[in-house]
Design a protein around this nucleic acid. Sequence first.
DNA 1: GGCCAGGCCCCAG
DNA 2: CTGGGGCATGGC
Length: 253
Amino acid sequence: MSASIHLEATLFSGQSFAWTQQDGIYQAVLNQELVSFTEESFHTVVSSNPQLRHYFDMDWEYEKALSHLSSLDGHLSEAIQSYRGIHILNQDPWEVLMSFLLSQNNNIKRIRSMYQKLSEVYGAHIEGPWYAFPRPQHLQGVTQRELRALGMGFRAPYLLDAIQNHAILAGIPLLSDQKASEELQTIKGVGPKVALCILAFAYHRQQAFPLDTWMLKVMKTYYPGRDASYFAPYAALAQQYLFHYERTQGGRS
DNA sequence: GGCCAGGCCCCAG
DNA sequence: CTGGGGCATGGC
């Protein structure tokens, strides 16, 4: 059993936009159900629930991966020391697809608020202020005008194309990384970077190494001339540490 | 109040 | 194949 998961760094490092944290309570709707826990109750809540165990990826080889990555270089080792316990979640592919369509030329705060907006307007009501993220069938018939009125901006047509072609997602597990990426990119608004985020955060492909503006800066500064292969076979996990570290303290005075 | 954000589309060369 | 403008919006 792996040591400890770093809940805050895992849930707020830009791989999921479903979570809130207030007064020490983490909450989100998963599988049409409200999930709540604190740092103290997390293990009790999760260990008795196989679906949550899988969602939080509690049985993967994090010890082995971190031991390897820490040996690579000082910068990565520092990022790992700072946030040891980041897990890569096994999220629903549909929600990850939609989330990262929203992500382009956008910031994490606003991605989260747009995700919540779609949930409140089109998703099933769960309880109190909580809504599930809408399934594709809940979004049939939605128009571009509606989506733009909700503030989705130029991403509206991309969301519509994803709604029409969501069936692509079911076939992704059968494909190689390369073929899977090409298949995802047949959806409008999905380019190389968004495809890699989907492969990493929904399909747990460890070779996926998405490069956004932050990661481009990291690579230029600390890893000139290198690429994902340097971090193999744990590129996705390395990327998540480097991304989060850069956005929080790394490089800041 | 301008700059920037987990980019991509589209069109020129 | 590569480069660069345009794109909606709001947080800061």
